[in-house]
Design a protein around this nucleic acid. Structure first.
Lengths: 195, 195, 195, 195
DNA sequence: TCTTAAACGAGACGGTACGTCTGGTCTTGAA
DNA sequence: TTCAAGACCAGACGTACCGTCTCGTTTAAGA
């Protein structure tokens, strides 16, 4: 593809432009044809790249989509704050993330194909949730000690609930009013955990 | 297949034993090899049935799994009761449903492939949620009038939350302690909605 | 079929109208779609008859076509006559037979599928050629004794030549001028055998 | 297949060894199971090759058999010679060709399936006959001018006769004495055309 | 008249072959 | 060494037809 526009730049090194073209084509295809109808063939074709160039970088469709949807650097999720603000931030963050058209299409597919790839499953779970879990557990514990939070609230269940609610509402029921969803979900969960 | 064991019963009518064999084989395969690795071939083979006999009944794998996992008649979900009991019943019901090994395997696949089949999507959404939604909305409205329930609680969001939490916990994180999950989820949601 | 137009006539006996409908439909299909694209299904459908009604009568497509194209009663081919007249009659008969549009379509298919059915092969060979062969051999022998026919002419080779020439010209090269073909073929063969 | 025995030679180019394996397997299958019972599946399997590798080269069974039986270059058939020698050569050539066990099996099938593929029909007709026809017509004309050949002999009819006789005798009647057949056929035709 | 038996249309059954597509691996030749 | 191009094997896809079977009805022939 760099071939058409200009002459080859790189000899022995992988061309970053090819990486970018593949990931970009994958995002485009996700909203155009949906996760299930994406094939390695179609990704390569849409990226203007040979099939082996794709296989050289990722072993399977699910890995490409994963990287296309959740770019490698996920900044800081956690922060030492008030419980209320932290939950609010988590809910709005989740709704924003899972409400993106690309993510909406990708998430059910990832949930499905992830299951046969334990490594990816671990990576995804850790990156999306584990980081937040520890910080949240700490915040909840602090809040409980301060009497703001009811004791016995499990950070894992809270995160499952938060993420699950967003996924079902956005990828399955396809709710469109993100603002309203985030607000009512925050309201429900905050009342659920605060003393 | 009924052929081997006994004589043919039905001429121009579809043999219910074949239906049963296919659905049963599908359930078996779901826990043995997982949704993604199921093929129409493998279903037909495991059911001891020709491939066309499968295609005569369902157009795609997702439809077979759908019927295998959620049998056609889903009795009564709703009942006019106390809010607390109704929510408790819904949560425990969802955890029991999505905690079944067959359902755990099937749900992510269904969520994924459902997206390309609007008809099935509608059917699934209606059957699993719509029934409960109306009854729940009524119960919430009654509870709000009686001062038990905080006003402004949306039945849709509540059901998304409930189902999403169960799905993420059981199919993604693969929590095993159903009792504990149902209890903590009930606790969280009840505090979230009660006044 | 008889069902639609009038009431059933026959109970436990095979309905001759069904035989006729099948053979007639086969002839029609031969010129419409060609031998290769005929299926038992299409024959049954075109005859307005169930598939088993076909299988009850003939075991395979090739048998149906055989009977549709070469009706069971093949009168007398041979006659004690002058060699010249007999050869002329054979050539014109062969050209008329293999020049019929139905036969043109059927013959290559029969030649092909016949090979895997020794019984049919025998029947066809005997019916079409063996009858003529004996008579022709006798006539040739008589002619040779009378000095009209060169000695050593083999009736088998002569019939192969005659039939083969007609088949290749009519079914393969698809010559249309039957008159001219028969005349030039008669001329060639008569000069070939007469002293 | 070359894969197993030695290292690959060709990258983006079709491997000639695969072509050869397919054609060779086809010839083997022709005599082993007959034209009708050959399938693309069985060819691919017998050649130790994937099915798509076959479809990449030929669109249908009849094309493969055609190429397997009549290799692309059929050197020179014709030559300016005495009429007698030329006819003798044509007859012996035809008997040798159609008497080969592979060709015997293939010819009726080709005659049948050729009919639904006008392109192949043309190719086959031209390659086998057209080349000889022109040369033969010229030789006959020369012979007629020299008084050796009776006037009015049509090269087309003569070739139909020659080929048809060989096909019927060898593929249908399955005559085994090639020598005798060629001799008696030559005798018959030469007397038929010579003055 | 009543029973029996066979042929009817319809269509499901287990199979098999079709031709197409995808997945992943490999090799070539250019850069 | 990477890249594009594309051939390779393997095998799933969904369709069509095969030949067999059972169904439930209709009808002729025999009791």
């Amino acid at each position: 593809m760099a071939r058409g526009s200009t002459t080859h730049k790189l000899g022995p090194h992988q061309d970053p432009a090819v990486d970018a073209a593949i990931l970009s084509a994958t995002r485009r295809l996700l909203v155009e044809v949906g996760y299930s109808d994406i094939t390695i063939n179609s990704i390569a074709a849409a990226a203007g790249v040979g099939r082996p160039a794709v296989y050289r970088r990722w072993p399977a469709k699910v890995h490409i989509v994963h990287e296309a949807v959740f770019p490698p650097l996920t900044a800081e999720w956690v922060s030492d704050d008030q419980v209320e603000n932290e939950v609010r931030r988590l809910v709005f963050g989740a709704v924003a993330l899972f409400g993106d058209p690309v993510t909406r299409e990708a998430v059910p597919g990832l949930m499905c194909d992830m299951r046969s790839d334990p490594a990816l499953k671990k990576v995804l779970a850790e990156r999306l949730l584990a980081g937040a879990r520890e910080g949240l557990a700490q915040t909840l514990a602090d809040g409980a000690r301060a009497g703001q939070v009811r004791p016995g609230i499990d950070a894992g269940t809270l995160l499952d609930t938060l993420a699950g609610a967003a996924i079902v509402a956005l990828s399955i029921r396809e709710v469109d009013d993100l603002e309203r969803l985030a607000t009512s979900l925050t309201d429900l969960l905050l009342h659920g955990i605060l003393a």
